[in-house]
Amino acid sequence: MLPLHDILVEQFKSEFGEDLLHCEIRNRPEGVKRPRDQRSLWLTFHRRHFHMAVTFLSRFGAPHISCPMASREYEDRIDLIYPFTIYGGTGNYMELPVIITAQVPRDDLRIRTVTDIVPGILFMERETREMLGIDIEDIPDERRLFTPGNLPPEMKPMLETYRGAGRGGGR
């Protein structure tokens, strides 16, 4: 019997205690004739506990990464949002998205890689490095992914402060 969302939350709380900065379960009803609830789990950590959190998550099932990392910018920090999902392929309606947010302070933009736990995240980490300028430590492959080699290294296209050269920005 796979641990469901409520048991998972209890386990995370007992393992991490105060380090789990925020945790939330979201419900959404789906289906017309056979309605069922779709749940997702949203956790927030500081970047120094992030690698431990993903290792703890991998004890329940091999995590699958759904989407490259999204980012929210605040004055003193940048939040990196990693949408993992576990229990994929184990049976009907069992998959659970576990969305882990890692808080990275703005004066020290780096975070540890998780390719040792989820090897498929390599391309997404390469994209985050070049688009947001956050240094991923111990990454096995340091090359750029999408931007050409002659783009100046100061240009970080996905940061809010970057506005296309000479255009004055959007609305």
């Binding site: 289906g31 017309v32 056979r34 069922r36 699958h64 999902t85 994929g88």
Partner: peptide, 15 residues
Amino acid sequence: PKDVRIDYPCNAYPD
């Protein structure tokens, strides 16, 4: 056997 239509369904797939 990963399939989003069965693992995390939306639209009419749960029926």
